[in-house]
Design a protein around this nucleic acid. Structure first.
Lengths: 109, 109
DNA sequence: AAATTAAATCGTAATATTGCAATATATAAT
DNA sequence: ATTATATATTGCAATATTACGATTTAATTT
């Protein structure tokens, strides 16, 4: 117990849930919004701007990287992060397919 | 520690994260897909169809209800669940605003 | 090569989530 | 009223997440 029973769900269901999970933290939303608005984003800037410790930011960045939502390039001593365009497109596709599946027919309750 | 520091984020960021969190489990995705395909959905059917205990299904339904993503009506001995159209619309709006904020300009890395 | 700077990793404490058996509650049928 | 059926709640164990100080790793500058 205490462990998600992924075996009983479809790959699609697990993937979608994993994607949502990667986005299910305000710090990660904030990091992504920062990247979205600046296009570019140096890791250290996030530490200054969000009120979280360097280790914490680094951990959130790692999760976003693991989900392949962002990618980082070493730029001298710093690391520059940006959106992974392929994954972002895929997120848009998957989520709009999921959300768009609702057709407001005669509601039952 | 071990507790999300919501105070340092905007209401919008927290709301979006909360929404994503409600959807961040394959059982809840499966439940929603089931409702989306049938429009109607009796709680007991979910227990039969997904391979999870009745208490577990009930708990996931409660989370979706708390997030106001679904609503339930007592129908005799059973409970009939369906999508909350207002919240669903709002999810679509919020998520597409968030995802649509990415304009693939000259990528930096 | 030593010092500096930036980011990642480790270790750990606090809290949250997941799953289920057992029990409680609520409505319907007898 | 009693019984049957369906769902919710409680209690608890196992695992996951969040946060951060301390340390390590990696690249740059001196």
């Amino acid at each position: 117990m205490g462990l998600t029973r992924t075996e009983i769900f479809s790959t699609e269901q697990n993937q979608l849930a994993t994607l949502f999970k990667a986005l299910a933290h305000p710090a990660r939303i904030a990091i992504l919004q920062r990247i979205l608005s600046s296009n570019t984003c140096i890791c250290g800037d996030l530490v200054d701007e969000l009120g979280l410790a360097q280790a914490t930011i680094s951990q959130h960045l790692k999760e976003l990287k693991n989900a392949e939502i962002i990618q980082g390039t070493i730029e001298g001593v710093s690391v520059c992060y940006c959106i992974n365009p392929v994954t972002w497109k895929s997120i848009e596709t998957q989520m709009s397919a999921f959300l768009g599946a609702y057709k407001q027919e005669a509601s039952c309750c």
